[in-house]
Amino acid sequence: MLDLFHALFLAPFDYGFMRRAVVAGLALSLAAPPLGVFLMLRGMSLIGDAMAHAILPGVALGFLFAGFSLPMMSLGGVISGLLVAGLAGSVSQMTGHREDAAMASFFLISLAAGVMLVSLGGSSVDLTHVLFGSILAVNTTALVLIAALTSAIVLAMAVMFRALVVECLDPLFLRGQGVRNGLIHGLFLALVVLNLTAGFQTLGTLMAVGLMMLPATTARFWSKRLEGLMGIAVVWAMVSSTGGLLLSYHLSLPSGPSIILLAGIGYVLSALLGRHHSLRARLRRRAAPLERGETA
């Protein structure tokens, strides 16, 4: 029994690339889900996906100038993401269009521009690497960068936590305290961009948002309290990242999709069986009046 446990759960991490991959996944699992919870509470779940595509042109430019240099690609991604967020906010203020509509427009432009740049400067393999990532290819430099970015995100969220919560629940009160809503909103979007930049090396620009949103939306079916949402989301993200790596190792599956699909399976099961807002909870609410009527 112990030999089977060792072979299934411990032996894969005898390899250095697996150890680096699991540490990178755990680091992202600490920073991404809390941001996903705030995006969900703000009704901005799809904004995360738009921002994930917004970093692509900057990543592509970094690739064109320096090849697979993660620091240069990350710097380009941060600049590109912040630029798109700023442009979307400016267009929304100047024209009166909803910010999500402006963001969707810019993310489509960014996606097309990024794919074009990578295709002009590299091969289909390079494009696949940028779009879908490769967590098993994380080296020491990438791991240090991911750890530094996720640590900065967690620290910034801890400092801004009260303001982020108040802005979600009562933005007028925050304005009354002399704090500009736009400032908090802009800083929050900057944290989202930093997280997506940290995650593109492991999951690619197309799936980096998965580890942010899927655990957060899964937690919604199990808790109604903010601390519960964040705790469950972080734990499920860690389980998904580690479990997805183990599945990819034993079944020879691509690692990034394995992680996201495992997180997605948790979401589907939670939607069916969770304590709140799930199909099971809805059926129980419908059955409760009938049971009371029979008892009477």
Rank of each mutant, 00 (worst) to 15 (best):
Asn195Arg: 00
Thr197Arg: 03
Arg175His: 15
Ala163Pro: 02
Leu191Lys: 00
Ala156His: 04
Ala208Cys: 10
Arg162Asn: 13
Phe200Gly: 05
Leu155Phe: 07
Thr197Lys: 04
Met207His: 04
Gly182Leu: 08
Leu169His: 05
Pro171Cys: 08
Leu187Cys: 14
Arg180Asp: 14
Ala158Arg: 04
Pro215Ser: 12
Leu155Arg: 01
Leu189Val: 06
Asn195Ser: 03
Gly204His: 08
Ile184Ser: 04
Glu167Thr: 15
Leu164Pro: 07
Phe173Tyr: 06
Ala152Thr: 12
Thr202Phe: 10
Leu174His: 05
Ser151Trp: 06
Val159Gly: 10
Met213Cys: 12
Met160His: 11
Gly178Gln: 08
Asn195Met: 10
Gln177Met: 14
Val166Glu: 15
Leu214Ala: 13
Ser151Cys: 09
Val209Thr: 13
Val209Gln: 15
Leu214Glu: 00
Pro215Val: 02
Gln201Lys: 12
Leu214Arg: 00
Met160Asn: 00
Ser151Leu: 03
Asn195Leu: 03
Gly210Gln: 06
Leu164Trp: 00
Pro171Asn: 01
Glu167Ser: 08
Ile184Phe: 04
Arg162Tyr: 15
Leu172Ile: 05
Ser151Phe: 11
Gly204Asn: 08
Arg175Pro: 00
Ala190Asn: 07
Phe161Asp: 07
Leu172Met: 15
Ile153Lys: 01
Val192Ile: 15
Gly176Glu: 09
Phe200Ala: 07
Val159Trp: 11
Thr205Gln: 04
His185Ser: 11
His185Asn: 11
Gly199Tyr: 08
Val209Pro: 02
Val166Ile: 15
Cys168Met: 08
Asn181Tyr: 07
Leu206Val: 10
Phe161Arg: 08
Thr205Pro: 00
Ala158Cys: 06
Phe200Gln: 02
Val166Gly: 11
Thr197Pro: 11
Val166Met: 14
Phe173Gly: 13
Leu187Thr: 09
Met207Gln: 06
His185Val: 07
Val193Met: 02
Val192Leu: 14
Asn181Pro: 01
Thr197Glu: 02
Leu174Asn: 02
Ile184Leu: 13
Leu191Pro: 02
Leu172Ser: 12
Phe200Trp: 15
Phe161Ile: 01
Cys168Pro: 01
Val165His: 03
His185Gln: 11
Phe200Thr: 08
Ala198Tyr: 05
Glu167Tyr: 06
Pro215Tyr: 06
Ala163Ser: 11
Met157Trp: 04
Ala158Glu: 09
Asn195Trp: 00
Phe173Asp: 09
Leu174Ser: 06
Val154Gln: 08
Met160Asp: 13
Val154Glu: 00
Ala158Tyr: 03
Ala190Tyr: 12
Gly182Val: 08
Leu169Ile: 05
Leu183Cys: 05
Leu196Asn: 10
Ala152Asp: 01
Val166Trp: 00
Phe188Asn: 00
